[in-house]
Design a protein around this nucleic acid. Sequence first.
DNA 1: TGACCAACCATAAAAAACCATGGTATCCCA
DNA 2: TGGGATACCATGGTTTTTTATGGTTGGTCA
Lengths: 155, 155
Amino acid sequence: MAFFLSTFTNKVDKKGRVSVPASFRSAVAASHFPGIVVYRPLNFPCIEGADMSFLEQLSDRLYGDFGPFNPDQMSVATAILAGASQLGFDPEGRVMLPAEMRDAAGIDTHATFVGLGRKFQIWGADAYQAHLKDQLSHAAEAAPKLPPFGGGGQA
Amino acid sequence: MAFFLSTFTNKVDKKGRVSVPASFRSAVAASHFPGIVVYRPLNFPCIEGADMSFLEQLSDRLYGDFGPFNPDQMSVATAILAGASQLGFDPEGRVMLPAEMRDAAGIDTHATFVGLGRKFQIWGADAYQAHLKDQLSHAAEAAPKLPPFGGGGQA
DNA sequence: TGACCAACCATAAAAAACCATGGTATCCCA
DNA sequence: TGGGATACCATGGTTTTTTATGGTTGGTCA
């Protein structure tokens, strides 16, 4: 499955087009759908995206963990999957962000793409600066509670 | 997974390129991505690096142990993955260190690669001299306090 | 016809590939 | 064992390609 790293800030032109970072494009190139899938996360004022198989896996997991007729599952599936969009690349590797998502995320002239492993986020450039600060201080507390991983050291 | 040993100091040219030690290169050669992945550790003024599967493992482990929307998971993922970069080798085995990382680590003209097993660090050559001194004296005190490990005997 | 959307073309900046070189350690053979 | 040849590695500069970005054109649907 695709893997996303690093942070990139690109410009949104007046037609709403944004270049998807080249490394993100090549990450999803192998996928069945040649583009990205975006949705509104529940907990942050931003857009989240991934390749198609990530959403398929998320769906499978919801059904697997809760069963197909569980109310919690249904509400989460509706909130995420029903609002999702497939965005194809134009010949230059750009996408058009849906207007409602852009508004919801407060994306104006500059969009920041944030690689988070199997998925990524898209923030308004200014909002992300503040968010990053929060996350870093939160991570300092949260990191020791998380399971250790390779290298034998603190990451 | 790749394994890194020894210490090497190489020159950084004015374009920010550094030769990755040959033994580090061959360590990651088997990996899917032909290059290294670097990120800013939380606790030291240096750069840390590993092969791609190290970060994939970290990411998948976070997503596996917690739901995909857990706040602790998200903050750590943001701190590490969003600040990470994939650095591909040029045909001569060099990488371009991102400017912000070079600044954050105080790397000027000479970069010191420090093998630490599953991962490695990159320091400014001068800063590393001081750091090494600290670590050595600290290790002498810390070693006896470590719990015994493998083989059944005292280390 | 007018608004919207998708492809096309152009350009400047940044990144990657290419080519050349000097030094060092290693191998081979007399 | 000595000396030359050789392979490898780190380094520097130049060229080519990619990427991000802006504008323009053509088509489509209401």
